[in-house]
């Protein structure tokens, strides 16, 4: 027996859900179905798709260019994991220990996150500029002029030059998440550890990391999935070049789909971003099932 209150709920629900439902269903759910379909075809984006089953995936596995850009993306992932996350954690811990000027320091460290990656990319492109860039300027000023480089044209340095702004810009997000988490640890725990003689790195490794493991695990997953999607800086700074030396997976996707008229292959490359992300999450969660500590 439905009460008077709930009369008309079905109609109401349908009307209220439908705008969100239509946008989302067409451009996300239906689109991902289409995406799977395109990866099974040979198609230039115009004309009729020819069904080829898994040939795109087979070609992809044998494609040296794909593995080169996948290697670049994985390099970015590793740099983010082993530089961005630890530095963010240390900065968050130190910031949690100060009172005076806490807010301004927090604000400035987070600031780069609100700028577009395109803007950051162009700023760093100029910072890496051989003639007017600050990196060469510093090297010259401290007497290491012979280390000066045309950073973005040298195939040995270009990937790191393109990855650096990414690591720098999004460090703030992890910083802010870690900071909130550290502040939620009861102060007595940290104080008693300090009184017992734990300091600096020891305190972070022995006390903070185990206590925050769940948060750190989430940040690690975010770092990996976020880095796998990187596109903007690579395109703005170098178009992925020279060659494909600074191109990420998404850059190769863009090149194939919109410059090389191989739309279905581009879609296949895009699909691997999802596959790598899911693979990482499954493996990571499998390895670190129960490592957290309750307090």
């Amino acid at each position: 027996m439905r009460s008077k209150l709930h009369r008309g709920d079905n109609l109401f629900s349908a009307v209220f859900v439908s705008p969100a439902f239509v946008f989302y269903t067409v451009f996300v759910i239906y689109a991902i179905g289409l995406s799977f379909f395109y990866t099974m075809t040979k198609w230039k984006g115009v004309g009729t798709p020819v069904f080829v089953w898994f040939r795109n995936y087979v070609n992809l596995v044998k494609d040296a260019e794909y593995w080169q850009v996948a290697g670049n993306s994985f390099t970015l992932v590793l740099l983010a994991l082993f530089i961005q996350n630890p530095v963010a954690l240390v900065l968050a811990y130190l910031t949690s220990r100060i009172k005076f000027a806490f807010k301004p320091i927090r604000s400035v460290i987070f600031l780069p996150c609100v700028i577009s990656a395109a803007t950051t990319g162009l700023m760093f492109q100029l910072l890496f500029n051989a003639d007017i860039g600050i990196f060469n300027g510093i090297l010259k000023a401290i007497g290491l002029g012979f280390f000066q480089h045309v950073w973005l044209s040298d195939s040995k340095t270009v990937l790191f030059a393109v990855a650096l702004p990414q690591v720098w810009q999004y460090l703030g997000i992890q910083f802010i998440i870690f900071l909130a988490a550290i502040q939620s640890i009861p102060q007595e725990i940290i104080e008693s550890a300090r009184i017992d003689g734990a300091t600096g790195g020891n305190l972070i490794l022995r006390i903070i990391v185990p206590l925050l493991w769940e948060v750190i695990a989430i940040c690690i997953i975010l770092t990996v999935t976020g880095s796998l999607k990187a596109f903007d800086m690579s395109w703005i700074m170098t178009w992925g070049g020279p060659g494909l030396n600074s191109a990420y997976i998404s850059v190769l996707m863009y090149r194939h789909a919109f410059k090389g008229f191989n739309f279905s292959y581009g879609t296949t490359i895009a699909m691997t971003i999802l596959l790598w992300s899911v693979l990482f999450i499954v493996v990571f969660r499998g390895i670190f099932r129960k490592r957290g500590v309750a307090y």
Partner: peptide, 24 residues
């Protein structure tokens, strides 16, 4: 069910749906 349906998209990187969305 609806909640699950809508939040499924959180997991999907936009690149994977971007090319078919372009066609649509």
């Amino acid at each position: 069910l609806l909640y699950l349906y809508f939040t499924l998209g959180i997991m999907i990187p936009i690149h994977t749906v971007l090319l078919p969305s372009f066609i649509l």
